[in-house]
Design a protein around this nucleic acid. Structure first.
Length: 805
DNA sequence: ATAGGGTTAG
């Protein structure tokens, strides 16, 4: 994710960092007891026994302390000399032992016992341990209680206590509380700074985190090793290579690659991986002396992520040979990265690897695999895994749901929502985002509004992602005003808007043909110091294309590289070709394809072909169609267009040839669907669908529609119907097109004022457009049709969509 | 006694 204030950020990298953390204690006396630190420490006898002590011993002491209520009434157990020390020291020892033995729950239970007994037993040594337990368990309520206790008994002067509070709030995702403590600290040590940097990084408050790094270095505080790691982690999240290189240089100035320490080296590897520079990551990796699981994990996952899956698998094997065992985190990130590639074969390999290595299939790991199959497009495998899982949590359900939505299995997704309701799955922010994505795909505005209201009722935190999902849902379901409302509200709060949110709003305006507004928004975005990214540029070019803003689009395309520092990708060229071709500048569009530095893909040639059909240029269209058939031999849509093109040029021999080829290959168009939402329920239709309960009435309505259309002078354009049947059957097919069924249902609806809002997942069908325009005039009704990512508003026969037809 | 690499669902 790009954040604008980061660009060219000057890091004052002059101070050497400390390899060992230097513990700095404030030397001022405690304001409460007026004793100096050393005096206070003498008051607290130190335990003589060394860590770690066994769990069994801890249980014994625990039992003893409960019996004696933390008082030294029975100094019985001679082999446990620590019982002779003060209650506070005993409690502290016990709590830290529990934490060291991985039992933070017991540590907190001890705290409750202590509270039930005597407040005073907790001191400034005990509190940090307890807060660490709260942090590990994300127990914000416990943490706040301890915070209250700290204020009550006056321990807040202690830097260690304050640092621990910051850490606790950081781990509980309460950046605001952490920041309040940090800002009020009269004295800060390097731990305060690094913890706060980590906190801001975790909360994705990158500008704040970077400011802190700068302040810290300007205050001449030498970063410790953990501080260095925090800074590297921050940079990993920023993904900014120039800052990454600066920090890398800074780290090497202070330690040779061999002596750097495995934590910093691993953080460096991870930073380069996340900044997309595998070569640099590999260089560090090869120079490293000691490597651990984390180092290997980072490198394996990074190779898969950065398009080198074979290298990733090779490293996995090498890791094993060198005697480093992969752990659950290794396979979790493997599954995640394999899914992200969308490569089903690779994902299956990862699944097999996990089974072969005999990993216990935990809830988290299985959820990751469900998600992986969903992302790789294999809904069946995902569902099989999902159904076999004995336990599922909201993450599992959400993974399955988002998989269905991503693959486009709308029916299964809705079925799953029903099952979720039955299973009483707890819904959280992430589930809501998936549900909103489902609403977007299905065009279910009412359901989307319900989700929105539900979010408010449940008091779910409306973070940037959720707000973006809402904007996206409203825009894609046709309520661009509601999207705009959410967008404005998100700007008012302190959170600010990130690139994704701006992109969603700009894209939303683009698909409603509001190009000028979209362009204005980019200007505002830059004033807000949010840097446009590749996706922003796609949205802007889209907006220009759909609003006929040719010169503006060209200007933006030039600006992209010169001023925004973004190299156009093949998608941007596709948008430019679309912009030019739609406007009839076909030769210029063709020249752009010929001169572009990238290999043109389907979208690029497809945009040219659509323009050729629109402006009736058969010669160039033929070129485009041939290229498309080379790229995607199985796609019959292009063959149909090509045959139409030949027909236009009266080259009947070639028309027959293409048709014959189509018949032989048995190419079929995947069935499209249209949906309409009325009275809060969603009705979906496919071509010739008669499964709807009101199907007879709908059929009757379609007949009436067709009669009236013919009377109005409508002649069906059957050229886009792909069936090897005679013309009459084609006309029937066109009449029973899913969009017409949906519109018919809208017209017979008992709520006559209801807006007819049809969403279809088909490619633009020129005939439907013409017919719909006429229908809106005949029936004097507003009809809104969404076709892929474009809205067409028909009002009494006029279409305001900005597109050329 | 406090901070530190790799960690499921958007």
């Amino acid at each position: 994710m790009a954040v604008s204030p980061v660009k060219g950020f000057p890091l004052p990298l002059g101070i050497p960092f400390q390899n060992q953390s230097i513990l700095q204690r404030p030397s001022s006396p405690c304001p409460n007891c007026n004793r100096s630190d050393s005096q206070r420490q003498q008051l607290v006898p130190r335990p003589s026994q060394e860590f770690p002590i066994s769990l069994e011993e801890i249980r014994q002491i625990h039992g003893h302390m409960i019996r004696t209520q933390f008082r030294q009434t029975h100094p019985t157990a001679g082999h446990l000399p620590l019982l002779h020390s003060s209650p506070a020291a005993q409690l502290n020892l016990l709590i830290s032992s529990y934490i060291k033995n991985g039992r933070p729950e017991d540590a907190l239970r001890m705290y409750s016992l202590a509270r039930a007994g005597e407040d005073a037993v907790l001191d400034n040594f005990t509190v940090p341990s307890l807060l660490k337990a709260c942090a590990q368990l994300s127990r914000i309520r416990h943490g706040e209680e301890i915070h209250g206790f700290v204020l009550k008994v006056g321990l807040h002067w202690d830097v260690f206590v304050q640092n621990s509070l910051i850490h606790m709030y950081s781990e509980c995702a309460c950046a605001d509380s952490a920041r309040r403590i940090f800002e009020k600290m009269p004295e800060r040590d390097v731990v305060s700074w690094s913890t706060m940097i980590r906190c801001f990084t975790r909360s994705r408050l990158f500008p704040e985190a970077l400011n802190l790094v700068r302040e810290m270095l300007l205050s001449q505080i030498p970063p410790s090793e953990p501080a260095m790691v925090s800074m590297l982690n921050l940079c990993a999240e920023l993904g900014d290579l120039s800052i990454a290189r600066a920090l890398h240089g800074y780290a090497t100035k202070n330690a040779s690659p061999e002596a750097m320490g495995v934590n910093i080296s691993t953080a460096l590897v991870d930073m380069y991986v996340k900044s997309g520079c595998l070569a640099s990551a590999r260089r560090i990796f090869q120079l490293m002396g000691e490597k651990n699981v984390a180092t290997w994990t980072s490198m394996v996952a990074g190779s898969v992520r950065l398009n080198q899956p074979t290298e990733g698998l090779r490293l996995l094997a090498q890791m094993q040979r060198e005697g480093v065992a992969s752990n659950e985190i290794t396979v979790l990130s493997l599954a995640q990265e394999c899914g992200a590639t969308g490569d089903l074969k690779l994902s299956r390999w990862a699944h097999a690897y996990i089974l072969r290595r005999g990993f216990s299939l935990s809830l988290v790991l299985l959820t990751a695999m469900v998600d992986m199959y969903g992302k790789a497009g294999d809904a069946t495998s995902a569902r099989i895994l999902f159904d076999r899982m004995p336990d599922k949590d909201s993450a599992t359900w959400t993974a399955m749901l988002s998989g269905y939505v991503k693959i486009g299995c709308i029916d299964q997704a809705f079925e799953l929502v029903g099952l979720m309701k039955e299973a009483k799955v707890r819904l959280n922010e992430v589930t809501m985002v998936s549900l909103l994505a489902l609403c977007r795909e299905a065009g279910a505005l009412e359901l989307g509004r319900w989700v929105h209201a539900w979010i408010g009722r449940q008091g779910l935190r409306q973070d940037a992602v959720l707000a973006t999902a809402l904007i996206d849902m409203y825009a894609n379901c046709g309520d661009v005003e509601a999207a705009s409302g959410i967008f404005s509200a998100a700007g008012g709060g302190g959170g600010g808007r990130d690139v994704a949110m701006w992109n969603a709003m700009i894209g939303g305006l683009a698909m409603h043909g509001r190009g000028e507004e979209a362009l204005r928004l980019v200007g505002q975005m830059e004033e807000d110091r949010v840097a446009p990214n590749h996706i922003t540029c796609v949205a802007v070019l889209h907006a220009c294309s759909h609003s006929g803003l040719v010169s503006e689009g060209k200007a933006f395309f030039r600006r992209m590289e010169r001023e925004l520092g973004l190299t156009p990708t093949v998608e941007h060229y596709g948008c430019m070709v679309d912009l030019l071709a739609r406007a009839g500048m076909l030769d210029e569009a063709h020249r752009l394809i010929e001169t572009m530095p990238l290999r043109p893909n389907v979208a690029v040639w497809g945009a040219l072909l659509a323009g050729c059909k629109l402006h009736r240029n058969a010669a160039l269209g033929e070129t485009a169609a041939k290229r498309l058939l080379e790229l995607e031999p199985g796609n019959c849509g292009y063959s149909v267009l090509l045959s139409n093109m030949y027909a236009m040029a009266r080259r009947w021999g070639e028309v027959a040839e293409v048709r014959k080829l189509l018949r032989e290959t048995g190419a079929r168009k995947s069935p499209g669907f249209s949906s309409i939402e009325l009275g809060g329920s969603l009705h979906r239709f496919t071509m010739g669908d008669d499964s709807h309960p009101q199907s007879p009435q709908i059929r009757a309505m379609v007949e009436e529609m067709m009669r009236k259309l013919t009377l109005a002078g409508y002649v069906p354009d059957t050229s886009a119907v792909l069936l090897n049947v005679d013309e009459e059957e084609k006309e029937t097919a066109l009449a029973l097109h899913s969009e017409k069924l949906a519109i018919a249902f809208g017209l017979i609806s008992t709520a006559p004022s209801a807006l007819i809002r049809v969403v279809k997942n088909l490619r633009v069908c020129g005939d439907c457009h013409t017919a719909t325009k006429l229908l809106s005039e005949i029936y004097q009704r507003d009809i809104i049709v969404k076709d892929r990512n474009r809205f067409h508003h028909f009002s009494r026969g006029a279409c305001s969509c900005g597109d050329y037809w």
